[in-house]
Simulated assay, not measured.
Amino acid sequence: MINVKSRIFYLKSKTSDHLYSSQQNRGQGIGKTLIHAAEQWAKQQGFLELGSDAPISNEKSVNLHKQLGFNEIERVVCLLKPLKR
């Protein structure tokens, strides 16, 4: 499965993110192939950047992205507060 969503940042920069392979397909080079395909698609669409994110704990994904030329730009902490009814 490939999932690519596009979003517009600032006025002149288009980016694309949310690219993943299903759990059972990981470790087979599919992620690398998907990223390369997404890059080609993004270039054809006139995108200026390809963005992605991965949980900090997913070292395999982070390392793959870095090997493919992605630069880490920030780390995020996600927070959740349950609401009492």
Rank of each mutant, 00 (worst) to 15 (best):
N3F: 01
V4K: 03
V4R: 01
S6H: 10
R7S: 15
F9C: 15
Y10D: 11
S13I: 15
K14W: 12
T15R: 10
S16K: 07
H18Q: 10
L19Y: 01
Y20K: 00
Y20E: 03
Y20N: 02
Q23S: 04
N25F: 13
R26V: 07
R26P: 02
G27T: 12
G31D: 04
K32F: 00
T33Q: 11
I35D: 04
A37Q: 15
E39F: 05
W41H: 05
W41G: 04
W41D: 08
A42D: 03
A42C: 05
K43A: 14
Q44I: 07
Q45R: 01
G46D: 14
G46H: 07
G46T: 13
F47Q: 04
F47S: 08
L48W: 04
L48V: 14
E49K: 07
E49D: 12
E49C: 09
L50A: 02
S52D: 09
A54R: 00
P55M: 04
I56Q: 00
I56K: 08
N58A: 05
N58L: 02
K60L: 06
S61C: 06
N63H: 11
L64V: 05
K66D: 07
K66T: 10
Q67A: 04
F70I: 09
F70T: 09
N71T: 11
V76H: 00
V77I: 07
V77A: 03
L79R: 07
L79C: 06
L80R: 13
L83G: 01
L83C: 08
K84E: 00
K84H: 05
